[in-house]
């Protein structure tokens, strides 16, 4: 036993129809760490999360969480596994017919028979941790984007998960909310001993909190290591992403036919 691996993705291939998304991806996540998965939009970052949480199965290769193969699980085992995970969705995915308090209480009510006074304290504590105890009675429609994401975070940690998964936690947030979410991810990770997986393309924010980062492009991991190591990588594809250049190994143009022929000829747009 060298390292304590919580998630172990090995040589995973996955595609939708004829489109290949993963072509041999290896990713490992150590217990207690914050692991970032970065990459341009459309490289399958969210798909990776769906593989880890067992929403889809890989075409080949294995995805192990806590040492068990996720793809081989039936619904009961999968649900048991998911009770040990929390997930923060891009848009929060709060239940719109319940207020903030009930949203956070939802997993607890579904899975336990906690007495009401205890439940009330638990929910208030989690809401306090994300700074929204005062918003307990608001409805999801009344929240700003940043607040909704913090409520969703409180909901994700209410069952005290061992793994917390963040899907694009910084998208569409103002700088203050971004800083708040950033600090929360670090704090929760350290204070609760959670293992965190952050999927994002916000290089700055992610680099500041991640212990280890993976860079995905073209269905493969093109770089892995600490933020400093990633920034020091001479490889052009990595440099392009870390520095945000418009053109480079990842082309500016979506694959298309010959420009000249298409403009001058009468070819169809196929």
């Amino acid at each position: 036993m060298t390292r304590d691996l919580v998630v172990d993705v090995r040589n995973v291939h996955y595609g939708v129809g004829s489109r290949k998304i993963f072509d041999g991806v290896d990713i490992t996540v150590e217990r207690g760490s914050i692991t970032a998965v970065m990459g341009p939009s459309g490289t399958g970052k969210t798909t990776l999360l769906r593989l880890i949480t067992g929403q889809v199965a890989p075409a080949s290769g294995t995805v192990q969480v806590f040492g068990d193969d996720v793809a081989a699980m039936r619904q009961r085992a999968l649900f048991a596994l998911r009770r040990r995970m929390g997930m923060l969705f891009q848009n929060g995915a709060l239940l719109t017919d319940l207020n903030v308090f009930e949203n956070v209480a939802f997993p607890v009510r579904e899975h336990t028979r906690l007495p009401e006074p205890l439940l009330r304290r638990l929910v208030l504590m989690k809401l306090h941790a994300v700074g929204l105890r005062g918003a307990a009675l608001l409805m999801p429609q009344e929240l700003s984007g940043g607040m909704a994401r913090r409520v969703a975070l409180a909901r994700a940690i209410v069952m005290d998960p061992e793994i917390l998964i963040y899907d694009e936690p910084f998208v569409g947030l103002d700088p203050i909310s971004m800083g708040v979410v950033c600090r929360l991810i670090r704090q929760l990770n350290d204070a609760l001993g959670i293992t965190s997986i952050v999927v994002s393309h916000d290089v700055q924010e992610v680099s500041s909190i991640a212990d280890r980062s993976y860079l995905l492009a073209g269905g493969k991991v093109i770089a892995a290591g600490s933020s400093e190591e990633l920034r020091a990588t001479p490889e052009p594809a990595v440099r392009q992403f870390m520095e945000g250049n418009a053109d480079g190994p990842v082309p500016f143009h979506y694959p298309a036919g010959d420009y000249r022929a298409q403009l001058l000829g009468s070819e169809d747009l196929t």
């Binding site: 929403q55 048991a80 995915a93 579904e110 899975h111 909901r155």
Partner: peptide, 22 residues
């Protein structure tokens, strides 16, 4: 349909709650 469009059904599944039952 809107619950599906806003990921609420997926979120339930991720919380180990079966949307069919709930």
């Amino acid at each position: 349909g809107l619950m599906r469009a806003t990921d609420q059904l997926t979120a339930m599944q991720m919380m180990a709650v079966d949307p069919m039952r709930r």
